[in-house]
Protein backbone atom coordinates (compact mmCIF):
# COMPACT_ATOMS: atom_id res chain seq x y z
CA UNK A 1 0.00 0.00 0.00
CA UNK A 2 1.99 2.99 -1.16
CA UNK A 3 -0.25 5.68 0.27
CA UNK A 4 -2.65 6.05 3.14
CA UNK A 5 -5.01 9.00 3.27
CA UNK A 6 -6.98 9.41 6.46
CA UNK A 7 -9.87 11.72 7.26
CA UNK A 8 -9.09 14.37 9.88
CA UNK A 9 -9.77 13.44 13.46
CA UNK A 10 -12.78 15.11 15.04
CA UNK A 11 -11.74 17.90 17.32
CA UNK A 12 -11.53 17.00 20.96
CA UNK A 13 -14.48 17.75 23.24
CA UNK A 14 -14.29 21.15 24.84
CA UNK A 15 -13.95 21.03 28.58
CA UNK A 16 -16.41 23.59 29.85
CA UNK A 17 -16.51 22.64 33.51
CA UNK A 18 -13.16 24.06 34.37
CA UNK A 19 -12.66 24.74 38.07
CA UNK A 20 -12.96 28.36 38.99
CA UNK A 21 -10.01 30.42 40.05
CA UNK A 22 -11.03 30.39 43.67
CA UNK A 23 -10.69 26.64 43.75
CA UNK A 24 -7.16 26.82 42.50
CA UNK A 25 -5.53 29.92 43.84
CA UNK A 26 -7.22 30.02 47.23
CA UNK A 27 -6.56 26.40 47.94
CA UNK A 28 -4.55 25.54 51.02
CA UNK A 29 -0.83 25.78 50.63
CA UNK A 30 -0.25 22.21 51.67
CA UNK A 31 -0.82 20.75 48.22
CA UNK A 32 1.91 22.89 46.80
CA UNK A 33 2.92 20.76 43.90
CA UNK A 34 -0.23 20.66 41.86
CA UNK A 35 -0.13 18.34 38.91
CA UNK A 36 0.58 20.39 35.85
CA UNK A 37 -0.03 17.73 33.31
CA UNK A 38 3.61 17.49 32.33
CA UNK A 39 2.61 16.39 28.89
CA UNK A 40 5.66 17.94 27.32
CA UNK A 41 5.73 19.27 23.81
CA UNK A 42 2.82 18.05 21.78
CA UNK A 43 2.38 18.40 18.10
CA UNK A 44 -1.05 17.74 16.77
CA UNK A 45 -0.55 15.78 13.60
CA UNK A 46 -3.56 17.07 11.79
CA UNK A 47 -3.73 20.46 13.35
CA UNK A 48 -7.03 19.91 15.12
CA UNK A 49 -6.21 21.61 18.36
CA UNK A 50 -8.82 21.56 21.03
CA UNK A 51 -9.84 25.16 21.05
CA UNK A 52 -10.85 27.06 24.10
CA UNK A 53 -14.40 28.34 24.00
CA UNK A 54 -14.76 31.72 22.31
CA UNK A 55 -14.01 34.67 24.50
CA UNK A 56 -17.64 35.79 24.56
CA UNK A 57 -18.54 32.72 26.53
CA UNK A 58 -15.80 33.25 29.07
CA UNK A 59 -16.47 34.86 32.41
CA UNK A 60 -16.35 38.61 32.03
CA UNK A 61 -14.48 39.14 35.26
CA UNK A 62 -10.91 40.27 35.03
CA UNK A 63 -9.93 37.30 37.11
CA UNK A 64 -9.23 34.76 34.47
CA UNK A 65 -9.80 31.13 35.13
CA UNK A 66 -6.76 28.99 34.68
CA UNK A 67 -7.27 25.38 35.53
CA UNK A 68 -4.34 23.11 36.20
CA UNK A 69 -5.05 21.22 33.01
CA UNK A 70 -5.73 24.25 30.84
CA UNK A 71 -3.37 26.26 28.74
CA UNK A 72 -2.64 29.93 29.19
CA UNK A 73 -1.69 32.11 26.26
CA UNK A 74 0.79 34.99 26.14
CA UNK A 75 -0.78 38.11 27.65
CA UNK A 76 -3.41 36.16 29.54
CA UNK A 77 -3.81 37.11 33.19
CA UNK A 78 -3.10 34.24 35.55
CA UNK A 79 -4.06 35.96 38.79
CA UNK A 80 -4.14 39.44 40.34
CA UNK A 81 -3.89 38.11 43.89
CA UNK A 82 -0.83 39.85 45.42
CA UNK A 83 0.10 36.82 47.53
CA UNK A 84 1.66 35.09 44.49
CA UNK A 85 5.18 35.62 43.24
CA UNK A 86 5.93 35.56 39.56
CA UNK A 87 8.26 32.91 38.19
CA UNK A 88 9.53 31.88 34.78
CA UNK A 89 7.23 32.50 31.86
CA UNK A 90 5.31 35.32 33.56
CA UNK A 91 5.56 39.07 33.96
CA UNK A 92 3.76 41.88 35.75
CA UNK A 93 2.66 44.67 33.39
CA UNK A 94 3.08 48.21 34.65
CA UNK A 95 -0.19 49.43 33.17
CA UNK A 96 -3.50 47.72 32.82
CA UNK A 97 -4.17 46.18 29.43
CA UNK A 98 -7.29 44.82 27.86
CA UNK A 99 -6.76 41.38 29.22
CA UNK A 100 -5.00 42.07 32.50
CA UNK A 101 -5.13 44.50 35.38
CA UNK A 102 -2.06 46.44 36.53
CA UNK A 103 -0.03 44.43 39.01
CA UNK A 104 -1.50 41.14 37.95
CA UNK A 105 0.65 38.20 36.97
CA UNK A 106 0.45 37.65 33.23
CA UNK A 107 1.74 34.76 31.19
CA UNK A 108 4.45 35.54 28.66
CA UNK A 109 4.40 32.13 26.94
CA UNK A 110 1.81 29.59 25.87
CA UNK A 111 1.89 26.75 28.34
CA UNK A 112 0.62 25.22 31.53
CA UNK A 113 0.66 26.99 34.90
CA UNK A 114 2.94 25.44 37.50
CA UNK A 115 2.82 26.37 41.19
CA UNK A 116 5.65 25.85 43.64
CA UNK A 117 4.59 27.08 47.06
CA UNK A 118 3.85 30.74 46.34
CA UNK A 119 5.71 30.87 43.06
CA UNK A 120 3.68 30.91 39.86
CA UNK A 121 5.42 29.95 36.67
CA UNK A 122 4.28 28.92 33.21
CA UNK A 123 5.85 25.89 31.64
CA UNK A 124 5.97 26.50 27.89
CA UNK A 125 4.42 23.89 25.62
CA UNK A 126 7.33 24.09 23.28
CA UNK A 127 10.56 25.44 24.59
CA UNK A 128 14.11 25.54 23.38
CA UNK A 129 16.88 23.89 25.30
CA UNK A 130 18.36 25.84 28.21
CA UNK A 131 22.02 24.86 28.60
CA UNK A 132 23.46 24.00 32.00
CA UNK A 133 27.13 23.56 32.85
CA UNK A 134 28.09 19.90 32.53
CA UNK A 135 25.35 18.96 30.07
CA UNK A 136 26.24 16.54 27.32
CA UNK A 137 24.94 18.07 24.12
CA UNK A 138 24.72 17.00 20.51
CA UNK A 139 25.11 19.91 18.14
CA UNK A 140 25.75 20.83 14.56
CA UNK A 141 28.39 23.27 13.38
CA UNK A 142 26.71 26.13 11.55
CA UNK A 143 29.52 28.62 11.33
CA UNK A 144 33.29 28.54 11.36
CA UNK A 145 35.06 31.64 12.66
CA UNK A 146 38.74 32.47 13.06
CA UNK A 147 39.26 30.89 16.44
CA UNK A 148 36.00 29.22 17.25
CA UNK A 149 33.01 27.36 15.88
CA UNK A 150 29.39 28.28 16.36
CA UNK A 151 27.28 25.25 17.21
CA UNK A 152 23.52 24.84 16.97
CA UNK A 153 22.50 22.89 20.08
CA UNK A 154 18.78 23.67 19.91
CA UNK A 155 19.08 26.56 22.33
CA UNK A 156 17.92 30.10 21.77
CA UNK A 157 21.43 31.08 20.84
CA UNK A 158 24.26 29.39 19.06
CA UNK A 159 26.82 27.87 21.41
CA UNK A 160 30.50 28.63 20.94
CA UNK A 161 33.23 26.02 20.70
CA UNK A 162 36.64 27.73 20.95
CA UNK A 163 39.60 26.21 19.17
CA UNK A 164 41.35 26.11 22.54
CA UNK A 165 38.66 23.84 23.96
CA UNK A 166 39.23 20.86 21.69
CA UNK A 167 41.83 18.12 21.77
CA UNK A 168 44.31 19.02 19.09
CA UNK A 169 45.86 16.13 17.18
CA UNK A 170 49.38 14.96 17.90
CA UNK A 171 49.33 15.06 21.67
CA UNK A 172 46.46 15.71 23.98
CA UNK A 173 47.95 18.65 25.79
CA UNK A 174 49.55 21.28 23.64
CA UNK A 175 49.03 24.90 22.87
CA UNK A 176 47.09 25.82 19.79
CA UNK A 177 49.25 27.24 17.06
CA UNK A 178 48.62 29.42 14.06
CA UNK A 179 48.71 26.30 11.90
CA UNK A 180 45.75 24.98 13.83
CA UNK A 181 43.89 28.22 13.27
CA UNK A 182 44.54 28.03 9.55
CA UNK A 183 43.29 24.48 9.24
CA UNK A 184 40.35 24.93 11.57
CA UNK A 185 38.02 23.34 9.03
CA UNK A 186 39.95 20.09 9.10
CA UNK A 187 38.73 19.52 12.67
CA UNK A 188 35.13 20.53 12.30
CA UNK A 189 33.48 22.04 9.24
CA UNK A 190 29.99 23.38 8.63
CA UNK A 191 27.34 20.72 8.98
CA UNK A 192 29.40 18.39 11.15
CA UNK A 193 27.56 16.75 13.97
CA UNK A 194 29.41 16.55 17.25
CA UNK A 195 28.93 15.58 20.84
CA UNK A 196 30.35 17.99 23.44
CA UNK A 197 29.96 19.19 26.99
CA UNK A 198 28.80 22.59 28.21
CA UNK A 199 31.77 24.18 29.94
CA UNK A 200 30.60 27.65 30.76
CA UNK A 201 27.54 29.83 30.49
CA UNK A 202 27.25 33.49 29.57
CA UNK A 203 24.85 35.74 31.39
CA UNK A 204 22.48 35.83 28.44
CA UNK A 205 22.15 32.06 28.30
CA UNK A 206 24.74 31.41 25.61
CA UNK A 207 26.93 28.37 26.18
CA UNK A 208 30.60 27.60 25.67
CA UNK A 209 31.33 23.99 24.81
CA UNK A 210 34.39 21.81 25.07
CA UNK A 211 35.38 18.46 23.61
CA UNK A 212 38.46 17.89 25.75
CA UNK A 213 37.70 14.27 26.43
CA UNK A 214 37.99 11.10 24.43
CA UNK A 215 34.23 10.66 24.80
CA UNK A 216 33.50 13.72 22.71
CA UNK A 217 33.97 14.45 19.05
CA UNK A 218 32.40 14.06 15.66
CA UNK A 219 29.45 11.73 15.27
CA UNK A 220 29.27 9.38 12.32
CA UNK A 221 27.99 5.92 11.27
CA UNK A 222 24.33 6.76 11.45
CA UNK A 223 21.63 9.36 11.65
CA UNK A 224 21.34 12.02 14.35
CA UNK A 225 18.37 10.61 16.26
CA UNK A 226 19.73 7.09 16.30
CA UNK A 227 23.24 8.24 17.07
CA UNK A 228 22.11 10.37 19.92
CA UNK A 229 20.07 7.47 21.17
CA UNK A 230 22.88 5.01 20.78
CA UNK A 231 25.51 7.27 22.28
CA UNK A 232 23.55 8.33 25.29
CA UNK A 233 21.44 5.32 26.02
CA UNK A 234 22.92 1.98 25.14
CA UNK A 235 26.54 3.03 25.13
CA UNK A 236 26.98 1.50 21.73
CA UNK A 237 29.24 4.35 20.89
CA UNK A 238 32.74 3.27 20.11
CA UNK A 239 35.73 5.05 21.48
CA UNK A 240 36.31 8.17 19.45
CA UNK A 241 39.89 8.64 20.57
CA UNK A 242 41.52 8.09 17.21
CA UNK A 243 38.53 8.89 15.07
CA UNK A 244 37.67 12.20 16.63
CA UNK A 245 38.06 14.20 13.44
CA UNK A 246 37.26 11.49 10.94
CA UNK A 247 34.41 11.90 8.51
CA UNK A 248 34.70 8.40 7.08
CA UNK A 249 32.06 5.89 8.08
CA UNK A 250 33.01 2.36 9.04
CA UNK A 251 31.45 -0.57 7.30
CA UNK A 252 27.95 -0.89 8.69
CA UNK A 253 26.03 -4.14 8.46
CA UNK A 254 22.59 -4.09 6.89
CA UNK A 255 21.06 -5.37 10.13
CA UNK A 256 22.56 -2.46 12.04
CA UNK A 257 21.22 0.01 9.49
CA UNK A 258 17.80 -1.52 9.84
CA UNK A 259 17.87 -1.21 13.61
CA UNK A 260 19.10 2.39 13.32
CA UNK A 261 16.09 3.11 11.10
CA UNK A 262 13.85 1.41 13.65
CA UNK A 263 15.28 3.43 16.51
CA UNK A 264 14.81 6.62 14.53
CA UNK A 265 11.24 5.57 13.81
CA UNK A 266 10.60 5.09 17.52
CA UNK A 267 11.87 8.58 18.36
CA UNK A 268 9.83 10.14 15.53
CA UNK A 269 6.71 8.25 16.57
CA UNK A 270 7.14 9.42 20.16
CA UNK A 271 7.43 13.02 19.02
CA UNK A 272 4.51 12.82 16.60
CA UNK A 273 2.24 11.33 19.23
CA UNK A 274 3.16 13.89 21.85
CA UNK A 275 4.99 11.57 24.21
CA UNK A 276 8.03 12.35 26.31
CA UNK A 277 11.32 11.36 24.71
CA UNK A 278 13.76 10.06 27.29
CA UNK A 279 15.96 7.03 27.80
CA UNK A 280 13.30 4.88 29.39
CA UNK A 281 10.64 5.67 26.81
CA UNK A 282 12.98 5.09 23.88
CA UNK A 283 14.19 1.74 25.23
CA UNK A 284 10.64 0.60 25.93
CA UNK A 285 9.48 1.92 22.58
CA UNK A 286 12.27 0.10 20.80
CA UNK A 287 11.41 -3.23 22.42
CA UNK A 288 7.75 -2.66 21.64
CA UNK A 289 8.62 -1.84 18.02
CA UNK A 290 10.64 -5.05 17.68
CA UNK A 291 7.72 -7.07 19.02
CA UNK A 292 5.30 -5.26 16.72
CA UNK A 293 7.52 -6.06 13.74
CA UNK A 294 7.65 -9.75 14.77
CA UNK A 295 3.89 -10.14 14.55
CA UNK A 296 3.32 -7.79 11.61
CA UNK A 297 2.44 -9.14 8.20
CA UNK A 298 5.39 -7.44 6.57
CA UNK A 299 7.86 -9.49 8.61
CA UNK A 300 10.46 -8.55 11.18
CA UNK A 301 12.48 -6.59 8.64
CA UNK A 302 9.78 -3.97 8.40
CA UNK A 303 10.86 -0.87 10.28
CA UNK A 304 8.10 1.49 9.22
CA UNK A 305 6.63 3.24 12.23
CA UNK A 306 4.67 6.08 10.67
CA UNK A 307 0.96 6.78 10.72
CA UNK A 308 -1.17 4.12 12.36
CA UNK A 309 1.78 2.02 13.43
CA UNK A 310 3.20 4.97 15.33
CA UNK A 311 -0.15 5.47 17.04
CA UNK A 312 -0.23 1.77 17.93
CA UNK A 313 3.22 2.08 19.41
CA UNK A 314 2.25 5.14 21.40
CA UNK A 315 -0.90 3.43 22.64
CA UNK A 316 1.10 0.39 23.73
CA UNK A 317 3.57 2.59 25.58
CA UNK A 318 1.02 4.69 27.39
CA UNK A 319 -1.03 1.59 28.22
CA UNK A 320 -4.23 3.15 26.92
Amino acid sequence: MPITILPPKPSRPINNNRPSEDDIYNASDSDSDAGTGGGGATIDPDGDHAMLPPSTKRPTTTRTTAATSSIVTPGEQITDDPQWMRGHGTYIPSTATGRAAAGAIVSSVAGTVARTNKLLSVRPLRARYTPEVGDLVVGRIVEVQAKRWRVDVGSTQLAALPLSAINLPGGILRKRTETDELQIRSFFAEGDLLVAEVQQLFGDGGAVLHTRSLKYGKLRNGTPEAEAGAAGITNMEESVSTTMYSSQNDRIEVETMREIARLRGVVTALVENGLRVDEDMVVRGYHEAVEMAMVSVEGSDDTYLGGEKGQQLAAALTGV
Binding site: P2, I3, I5, D46, A261, R262, T303, Y304, G307
Partner: peptide
Protein backbone atom coordinates in the same frame (compact mmCIF):
# COMPACT_ATOMS: atom_id res chain seq x y z
CA UNK B 1 15.28 6.66 7.27
CA UNK B 2 11.68 6.26 8.37
CA UNK B 3 11.39 2.61 7.37
CA UNK B 4 9.08 3.21 4.42
CA UNK B 5 9.22 0.98 1.38
CA UNK B 6 10.63 2.67 -1.76
CA UNK B 7 7.21 3.37 -3.23
CA UNK B 8 5.49 4.28 0.01
CA UNK B 9 4.26 7.82 0.65
CA UNK B 10 4.12 9.51 4.00
CA UNK B 11 0.71 9.07 5.58
CA UNK B 12 -1.62 11.97 4.85
CA UNK B 13 -4.62 13.47 6.48
CA UNK B 14 -6.93 15.00 3.88
Amino acid sequence: LDGRSPTQFRPLVA
